[in-house]
Amino acid sequence: MLKERFWTAVLLAPIVLAGLFLSSFDVFKLFVAGIVLLGAWEWANLAGLIPSTARLAYTSLIAALMATLNYYSPAGEFSGFLWVAVLFWWMAAFWVVRYPVVSGWQASWQRLLIGVLVLTSTWMALVTLQHQPKGDVLLLMLLLLVWGADIGAYFAGKTWGKAKLAPNVSPGKTRAGLWGGLTSCALISLCFIVYLELDLLLGVYLLLIAMLAGLASVLGDLFESMLKRHRGIKDSSQLLPGHGGILDRIDSITAAAPVFVLCLHLLSMS
């Protein structure tokens, strides 16, 4: 398993980094759309669609929605739409905390609608972020925050983890892991504050944004875990040997990206 994870990462990392940081804006939009569409195929399964034709139809719907959004806003300004996504993640937090008591998401059609919002908002957030001044730097910061939250949580959880964070959803996650992940996010944000040469006030704002993005990344991971638990599967697919599926790799970004981008948008307006 570890060998498979290693070689999958070695082969995919250059492709992903090139698609995200070395491509034109139009190619970037297509590249991210391709990842989202692979996630849509897997989400259809999470929602209970088994036939390939049904999953293909759902994936095509997501593709059509992204194409329509791109047609009406080719410059990638979707900040206004992201309010809906952020409000959804507030609701998702309530579902995760109260699982399995609270309903409102279990029906197949409900999970399909949730997928439309989550997947399209992920694409909108990343496209909006890339189009900003210093978009590459901000995109790198977002990715490092998500990865840092995961790595910090892993090591802190292994070292100090006793109290469970959400035992009904993901028994492996601990409160100590959460604090370890947030500490990593704080350190990463401090590095970018220094690199961007921000003054004290803007630095504090960016630190707060980083912490919110870190919390959101944990929520995204927990929410997908809740869907998989409800569906009775361990991984969203076996597309990536040793890593599971695309959704297993981007679940944290689906929540962190809209929160991060919307907070940056509000900061630019202040």
Rank of each mutant, 00 (worst) to 15 (best):
K3I: 12
F6A: 14
T8N: 01
A9W: 04
A9K: 02
V10K: 01
L12C: 11
A13G: 00
A13F: 13
P14N: 09
P14F: 08
I15M: 14
L17N: 01
F21H: 09
F21D: 08
S23F: 12
S23H: 02
F25S: 12
L30T: 03
V32H: 01
L38T: 03
G39H: 05
G39M: 08
W43A: 03
W43S: 04
L46K: 04
L46G: 06
A47G: 10
L49M: 13
I50G: 00
I50H: 07
P51N: 07
S52C: 01
T53C: 00
Y58V: 07
T59M: 12
L61G: 03
L61K: 02
L69D: 06
L69K: 02
N70E: 13
N70H: 12
Y71G: 00
Y71T: 12
Y71W: 14
P74I: 11
P74R: 12
A75W: 01
G80N: 13
F81R: 01
L82V: 06
L82E: 04
W83R: 00
V84A: 13
L87Y: 10
L87M: 11
F88S: 02
F88Q: 02
A93C: 04
F94C: 00
W95Q: 09
Y99S: 04
V102L: 14
G104K: 09
W105Y: 15
W105A: 03
S108D: 06
W109E: 09
R111V: 07
L112I: 11
G115W: 04
V118D: 01
T120M: 03
T120D: 02
M124A: 15
A125G: 07
L129A: 09
H131I: 00
P133R: 13
L139M: 15
L142C: 08
L142M: 12
L145F: 09
D150P: 07
A153T: 09
F155L: 12
A156M: 06
T159V: 05
T159S: 14
W160Y: 14
G161L: 12
K162G: 14
A163S: 13
K164D: 10
L165M: 13
A166M: 12
N168A: 14
S170V: 09
P171D: 06
G172H: 11
T174V: 11
G177K: 07
L178K: 05
G180M: 02
G181V: 06
G181S: 07
G181I: 07
A186I: 13
I188G: 05
S189T: 14
L196I: 02
E197Q: 15
L202R: 10
L206M: 09
A213E: 02
G214A: 11
G220F: 05
G220Y: 05
D221K: 08
E224N: 05
L227D: 01
R231N: 03
G232D: 04
K234N: 09
I246P: 01
R249A: 06
R249K: 13
I250V: 15
D251E: 06
D251P: 04
D251N: 11
I253D: 00
I253Y: 05
T254N: 14
A256L: 11
A257K: 03
A257I: 07
P258L: 10
F260Y: 15
V261T: 14
L262M: 08
C263S: 15
L264S: 10
L266V: 12
L267M: 14
L267Y: 03
S268G: 04
S268A: 15
S268P: 00
M269F: 07
